[in-house]
Amino acid sequence: MVIFKQNRYIALLVGVILVCFSAINLLHPGQVAEGKLNTVQMSNLQSGGGSRQPLQITYGTLATQKRISGIQHPKLSAAAVALSPLWKTEKLNLHQLTQVRAKAKPATVIQVKAAALKPAPNAQKMQQKTATATKGSQTAVKKVAATQLNPPTTLFFSRTKLLSQDQRSKATWHYAVSEEDLLLLQKIVMAEAEGEPYQGKVAVANVVLNRLRSANFPDTIYKVIHQKRQFSPVANGRLKRVKPNADSIKAVNAALSGVKEVTDDTYYFLSLTLAQDLTVHHSQTYVKTIGNHTFYK
C-alpha cells in the first residue's frame, strides 16, 4: 500500500490491467476457461452512424462457438443467433452412417431389380403360350423333316384326301409304295417340272397322288403316270431319259409325307405357253398358278 501511495501511477496502471482483463473475460469467457484462442477481428468499427466495414470472425472449438452467443455487441449477437442452430447440431457418426447405407442399399437394389424383372401375370401367360406354340411348331417341323428324308412306304386315303400317318385310323384304304413307284414318281416330277420352282414340283406330285386316290383314275402310281394322253413326257420318251435331281427327290418325299401345294381335288395341270391342247383349260375349274404351270380341278 505504501508503494501505491508513493507511486500513484503504478496503481493506475494495475487498475487499467485489471479492467482490460475483466473486459477480455467478459468478451471471451470460453477462451479464459479453456485456454484456447478464438479471435474476433473488427476493423473500422464506429459507434456513430458512419460506415462500418464487414466483420471478420474466426471461431474455435464447438464449445467456444456455443458460448459466443453471449456477446453483447449487436452485430456479433445477431451473427451468433443466426449460427446457433448449426452449433447445436450433433456430430454425425460417419462409421454408423456407412454401415446403414451398406445395409440398406443392396436390399433396395435387389427389390428394384426383382420388381423390374418380375413379369405381369398376363405377360407370363403369353410367354407360356408362345413357348408352347414354339415347341409344337418345332416338333411338327422336325417330324416333317424326318419324313421328308425317309418318306412313308404306306399311304392312307379317305374318299376325299390323302391322310397323314397320324390319321391312319380314318383311312378307307391304303396303298403300299414300292421302290419302283418312288423312282417313277421322282422321274415324272423331274420330267414335268425340271425348270419350275420347288412348290411347283410338289404340286405335280400332289396331282399324281390325287389321281391315285380318285376313283376316276387308275389305282396304281405306274398306271396313273402311263395313262394314255395324260403326261407328255411319257409320250415323247423324256420320262425314260431323265435322272431325278435333289430338288425333285425332296419334293416327292414331301408330297408323300402330306405336304400339299394344291388341294386334294386338283387333278390337272398344263403350261399355257407350251400346251397344244387347251381342252383342260376351257373345261376344268382353275385352282392356282405356280411358275409356268396352271392347275385345275
Score class of each variant (00 low, 15 high):
Ile3Val: 08
Arg211Ala: 05
Lys66Arg: 15
Ser164Asp: 02
Asn93Gln: 09
Gly258Trp: 03
Ile225Thr: 11
Trp173Leu: 10
Trp173Asn: 13
Val112His: 08
Leu83Thr: 05
Thr154Met: 01
Thr279Glu: 05
Val252Trp: 02
His95Ala: 13
Arg67Asp: 11
Lys297Asp: 05
Ala205Thr: 04
Ser77Thr: 04
Glu34Thr: 15
Arg211Leu: 01
Ala116Val: 01
Gly60Trp: 03
Leu117Met: 12
Leu256Cys: 01
Lys243Ala: 04
Val287Ala: 08
Thr285Trp: 00
Ser69Tyr: 06
Val14Asn: 02
Arg229Ser: 12
Leu209His: 01
Gln72Thr: 13
Gln127Arg: 12
Met42Phe: 13
Leu162Asn: 01
Phe231Tyr: 15
Leu26Asp: 03
Gln127Asp: 06
Asp219Leu: 06
Leu155Glu: 07
Asp166Val: 05
Glu179Leu: 10
Thr154Gln: 14
Phe231Thr: 07
Gln46Ile: 07
Gly258Tyr: 01
Ala131Asn: 11
Gln46Glu: 09
Phe156Leu: 04
Thr58Val: 14
Ser47His: 04
Gln186Asp: 07
Ala275Tyr: 04
His73Trp: 10
Gln96Trp: 14
Leu97Thr: 10
Ala145Asp: 12
Thr279Gln: 09
Lys228Glu: 14
Ala215Met: 07
Asn216Glu: 15
Ile110Glu: 14
Leu182Asp: 08
Thr266Asp: 02
Val2Cys: 00
Thr294Cys: 04
Thr266Phe: 03
Val109Phe: 08
Leu183Ile: 10
Phe21Val: 15
Ala146Cys: 03
Met42Gln: 12
Met1Cys: 01
Ala63Trp: 06
Thr279Val: 02
Leu239Tyr: 02
His95Arg: 14
Lys5Asn: 09
Leu212Thr: 06
Gln167Asp: 08
His174Phe: 06
Gln227Cys: 00
Leu163Ala: 03
Ser84His: 13
Pro218Gln: 02
Pro233Val: 11
Gly70Thr: 15
Phe156Thr: 01
Ser257Leu: 00
Val19Thr: 14
Leu239Met: 12
Gly35Val: 05
Thr154Ser: 05
Ala102Asp: 11
Ile290Phe: 05
